[in-house]
Structures are given as C-alpha cells and as structure tokens.
Design a protein around this nucleic acid. Sequence first.
DNA 1: CAGAATAGTTAGCATGGCTAACGATAATCC
DNA 2: GGATTATCGTTAGCCATGCTAACTATTCTG
Lengths: 151, 151
Amino acid sequence: MAVADRLHSAAIHLLRRLRREDATSGIGSARLSALSVLVFGGPVSLGRLAAAEQVRPPTMSRIVAGLERAGLAARAGDPRDGRQVVLQATRAGARVLHRGRRRRIAALAARLRPLAPRQLGTLAEAAELIERVLRRREPSRHRGAVAHTGR
Amino acid sequence: MAVADRLHSAAIHLLRRLRREDATSGIGSARLSALSVLVFGGPVSLGRLAAAEQVRPPTMSRIVAGLERAGLAARAGDPRDGRQVVLQATRAGARVLHRGRRRRIAALAARLRPLAPRQLGTLAEAAELIERVLRRREPSRHRGAVAHTGR
DNA sequence: CAGAATAGTTAGCATGGCTAACGATAATCC
DNA sequence: GGATTATCGTTAGCCATGCTAACTATTCTG
C-alpha cells in the first residue's frame, strides 16, 4: 500500500533527524525511551521493561547498565524473588528525561512553525490516526498478554 | 507545540511496531531506505544520497559498501568528475527492495486497511508535509553560502 | 602552477539490536 | 528433602548504524 510506504519513510526520516538532538543531550534514544517508561510508569522489573520496549532482555540489560552508569536509574533486588531486578529512575534521571524530551520536541516544533494552521491540523489528525490504528490488536493474532498501549 | 509532541510519539510508536518486521526481511532499515532512493530516484552520487538520507558521507559510504557486497547496488566513476561516485541499484537490488518493503510495511498496511479513503489521504498528506519540513535548512543557523551539497 | 575547495574513504568510537551460553534462584515433582 | 525443570538476568560475541577526525584524490581558482 502506497500510503503505508510513504508514512514509513516519513517516520524514519523524522526520527533520524531528531536523533541529532539526542546526541547533544548526551543520552541515546533507547536509553531515553526506557527511562521514560521508568519515570512515567514507576518501578518495574527488567524483563517487563524489555517487553514494554519490545527488545530482548540482554539488550535491556545493557541499556539499563548505561543508565545506571550515568546515575539516571538504579537497580534493586526484589525481596520476594531473588532472580528479579527492580529498576527505578533516579531524580537526576527524571530531570534528564524531561530536558531531553523538551529538546526533541522543540527541534521538531521549530520546523513545523512555517506551516499553515490547516497543515498543522493535518499532522495532528494523522498522529491521532496512527496512534489509533496501532492500538488495535495485532491482526491475526491471539488475544494474549500483549497490552503495551504505549505511553 | 502540542502537534510536535503528538507527532513525535506517533512516529516512535509506529517504528517500534515495525522494527520486528525488519529482522525477517534480511536487510537493515538504513540499507533498505537508501536502496529505495536508488530504485525510485535513479543513479545519484554518494554525497547526494547521504544528503537525501540525512546521514553523513562516511555513514553512507559504509551503507553503500554493504549494498555492494550484497550485490544490490553498484558504483561507477563519474566521467566528468573523477571525485564523484555514481551509485545505481542492480536488478537484484530492485527485486530485494520490493520484497523487503512489502514485508516491512505489511503489518502497517494491514492496520491501515480499515481506514476510509479520506483518512488515508490525510496520512499521505502528512507524510509529504513531514518530508518537506525535514528538507528545509536548519532554522536559526547561520546562513553561509554553503548550501550543503544542495538537493 | 600552487593552494583551496570538494568528494569519498578509512580509522576509531559509541549505541543498540540479536542469539547462545551461563549462573542463580524459584518452582515442581517424585 | 533432594533432583529436576523453569524462569530471570547477565556475559560474550556478532552485526548494523550513527558520528568525527584525518587522509587521498580530484577539481577549481587565483
């Protein structure tokens, strides 16, 4: 479908551009995204965080290691289950998250500024449509433990 | 700006959903994206391709090396300018592109299917707007006569 | 013709995906 | 209770993709 294709390309290029803001904020996109789950969702185990971010546990293990090294998140053992690790954002983590997010949004907003109100409306409507279709259940899949409605 | 925020989130969620499809296509998203420029846009120099893909020349150099190694694109010297390299998709490249794209956007297309034609039009227009604003020069940067390889 | 500008490449670093293999802990099954 | 099995996370090692700095080769310019 041509629309799916163009939308796909546009999303790739959009996020690729915003990556540059990440570089100046000193935190990569995977860390920023995981951190946002911790800040807005509260403490969670590593496995659940990996599932929420749709990555494998080893990947999340390394992302968390980076966050910990930077003092943005902390690990704690679960007293009831010694295998699990409970992750939580630190105060500095919350601060950095909000700052990085603002920076990305500001960069995008600057580019949208020359658009006409009608065009902005089109973008807003498109964003709404995208979120809506993504919220639907996976086509031709079981109604299992998917959840992850996004943030 | 609220629109920027919503668009940002929508793009993140969209690509996160599609990331899994990448793995099965046998070609990474950067290569797929660059290859698509070659297939649909025809022969082009490396620098222009890098600009179109919003990455730096060394990055594109390596992406092209991968495409070449896989037999999906070919380099040729520009007879008029010995510094430039002209890139072109091979037949195999075009074949792989179409197959990969189909696979990559299959999930998205399935999700868009229930939308009304007018809504699909909104999404197409939004994609076009995004690509356009991304191609503008950086706002609030000094306007040297650089033009950055133009477009 | 000498020097500046331009196009690509190479080298090296960081991030972020993955699988396979390995503990360590918990749950289950005689 | 002890052996087996299942689950959780980490480690090791692979590959892709971003970047800057520094280099070569070519072209343009003064």
